[in-house]
Design a protein around this nucleic acid. Structure first.
Lengths: 159, 159
DNA sequence: GGTCTGACTTGCATCTGCCGAAGTCAGCAC
DNA sequence: GTGCTGACTTCGGCAGATGCAAGTCAGACC
């Protein structure tokens, strides 16, 4: 199988999933909102306080994320209160967990405060810490040198 | 072990590794440069053409990334050419591979073009596609409901 | 000495994101 | 009806990122 890294002139970086993902979740505040949502935060005010972004920016960001399908705006009513709305993760949003986890792992290793990590995700069954790792579909753990880059159906060739 | 999601009022999101990671790799162009660097691109001109960002922006971004320790600026000389510089991934940069892979996986699933993914990472040994997945240190594959969020040494408590 | 090329830098206009302060709006409590 | 609260919206302004066009600079080649 041809490895695309061997001839970078023959294809372009158009039509790249990384770029399209970044168009949706590419800003700092969007990622931090996802971090909070994955930790269970749902209400506007809590997002504002915990993410540390102003109300106008938060309102705009949440609206964008609902439009993008990461969050769903759902009405609820606490007893004795009027109807309000909360923001719940969609499946699409939920599936960003590996991205956020990988970022957290990297930050813990390379950009940690002197104090060490503030929170740790652990496996409920065994208590061991959780990391985002690379694995192939056959279940093998993959190391850096074991990777081939091959053409998918959407690849744009040059020439 | 206490799960921090059960009492979000007792702690803050200060000192978060996700936020610190985003301060370093939080912009679209930085991520796309990392994508290219991980595919083997090294030269200024190639980055400009393949990432699709202008020369001034690219020069600024590369300078920031060298300062941040993601890339190293290394002199080289092709025969009959004067000395030039190329940008080589550091170990710190190399370790962003799970982040980029997780983003690519997500983009392939949720933001793919009609054409399907343009490139696919496969395992050299068995040819199966590679994904970023969550695993605990004991080697168990982790699913969404199996995760506890526990306090690390750097957690900032409230009250 | 003049040309060429890769790798930048400079300048200017634009666009997006964010902040703070203030205003709005909908209902429940009184 | 007045107050209060949560969830916003509006306004003005600054800062950083980006695009385009043009200029610079170093050294190999002629």
């Amino acid at each position: 199988m041809e490895d695309l890294r061997d001839d970078r002139e023959s294809w372009t970086s158009e039509n790249c999933s990384v770029a399209r993902a970044m168009d949706i979740v590419g800003s700092r505040s969007t990622v931090l909102i996802m971090r909070e949502a994955l930790l269970g935060t749902r209400r506007f005010d809590d997002f504002v306080r915990r993410v540390g972004v102003g109300e106008p920016a938060m309102a705009a960001r949440l609206k964008d994320m609902v439009t993008a399908g990461l969050l769903e705006r759902i009405p609820y009513r606490e007893p004795g209160q009027r109807t309000r709305h909360e923001y719940q993760l969609t499946h699409k949003g939920q599936e960003l967990l590996p991205v956020i986890t990988a970022l957290r792992n990297w930050g813990d290793t390379w950009a940690a405060a002197d104090t060490g990590p503030s929170i740790v995700a652990t496996h409920h069954d065994c208590g061991e810490p959780i990391r985002a790792v690379l694995r192939c579909a056959a279940g093998h753990e993959v190391t850096d040198g074991d990777i081939d880059i091959t053409a998918g159906p959407g690849l744009v060739r040059r020439d």
